[in-house]
């Protein structure tokens, strides 16, 4: 039972990160109908920027802020400079360009920082508190939950309570109708990419210190887990991405804990295949969101 509790909390902590990353994928999918395969590489690039600032100043939090702001800027730049000019007549075009971005970003990062794993700093201890002799949560886990929870709450408020959020949703559902209403559709798209990249950066900041460390490919495996989470929840569903992230985190934790860490990546891929075969629209995509503007 102790082991089960530990694995559950560990899985939820990891799942929260996958949820954030899946949310980033969903944000871009809803806005542009593109699965941004470059999300992981973009996140790593901003975490490297934060790492450089932390190393130069000694301040983890300054590096943290730089990484998040860097995500906003990088996301906006990728949309404005690259994705806006992609011919979207075939969905494959965006995917191919995103994969090209992965190669470019990872190559450039390798040239600048080398291809060795660098130790990524954390702001909080990862030693778990013991409750009744059972190791449950660490300060770092609480930081992860709080960060991801804050992002989910802020994004929910943005999309449901603000005119900008309403315009972003309108632009995603029916760009031409939105234009007629004065919505700057291009600007909303840029904002969507910027927010998604910033959320991706947060996920990178949270997960990289818990894995092998900072490396140009550090988010590749995380991307697969988060993509599975997004597909599980339904690529159109932000709440589905969050729940999908938590489910994938728990699955990985239980499989790693009971069957061995080497089996875990296979479990994620099996889950992905099962979802794609059984319910390709995901568990939380409703009919009304599939039918876009009439």
């Amino acid at each position: 039972m102790d082991r089960f509790l530990f694995l559950t909390f560990d899985g939820l902590s990891r799942g929260a990160v996958y949820a954030a990353f899946a949310l980033a994928l969903v944000l871009i999918w809803r806005a542009a109908r593109i699965v941004n395969f470059a999300q992981g590489a973009m996140a790593v690039a901003t975490v490297y920027a934060g790492y450089s600032v932390t190393n130069a100043t000694g301040s983890y939090w300054l590096g943290f802020v730089v990484a998040i702001v860097g995500g906003l800027v990088l996301g906006a730049a990728v949309e404005r400079v690259v994705m806006r000019f992609v011919d979207h007549s075939s969905p494959l075009n965006g995917v191919v360009v995103a994969l090209g971005l992965v190669l470019i970003i990872q190559g450039v990062l390798g040239m600048i920082y080398g291809n060795e794993f660098l130790p990524a700093p954390t702001a909080f201890s990862r030693d778990a508190f013991e409750v009744g002799g059972v190791a449950l949560l660490s300060r770092y886990d609480i930081f992860v939950f709080a960060s991801v929870g804050a992002v989910v709450v802020l994004l929910t408020l943005l999309f449901t309570r603000t005119p900008t959020g309403l315009r972003m949703r309108a632009a995603a559902f029916a760009p031409d109708v939105s234009r007629l209403l004065g919505v700057p559709v291009g600007g909303m798209l840029t904002l969507g990419w910027a927010l998604a990249a910033a959320v991706g950066s947060l996920a990178g900041l949270l997960v990289i210190p818990t894995e092998l460390g900072l490396h140009p490919t550090a988010m590749d495996v995380v991307f697969i887990s988060a993509f599975t989470a997004a597909v599980l929840g339904g690529l159109d569903s932000p709440i589905g991405a969050v729940i999908g992230g938590l489910v994938v985190g728990l699955l990985l934790s239980y499989v790693s804990g009971y069957l061995g860490a080497t089996v875990a990546p296979m479990a994620v891929l099996i889950l992905l295949v099962v979802v794609l075969l059984g319910r390709p629209d995901g568990l939380f995509t409703r009919a009304r969101t599939k039918a876009r503007a009439a």
């Binding site: 949703r169 995603a172 559902f173 029916a174 007629l180 919505v183 009304r288 969101t289 503007a293 009439a294």
Partner: peptide
């Protein structure tokens, strides 16, 4: 320019119902 129409005080409906079905 479509996104400047509102600024000029022009509103248009479309054939069909042209709505945001997710809203």
């Amino acid at each position: 320019r479509p996104h400047h129409l509102v600024r000029h005080g022009i509103a248009r409906t479309l054939q069909g119902v042209g709505q945001f079905n997710g809203l």
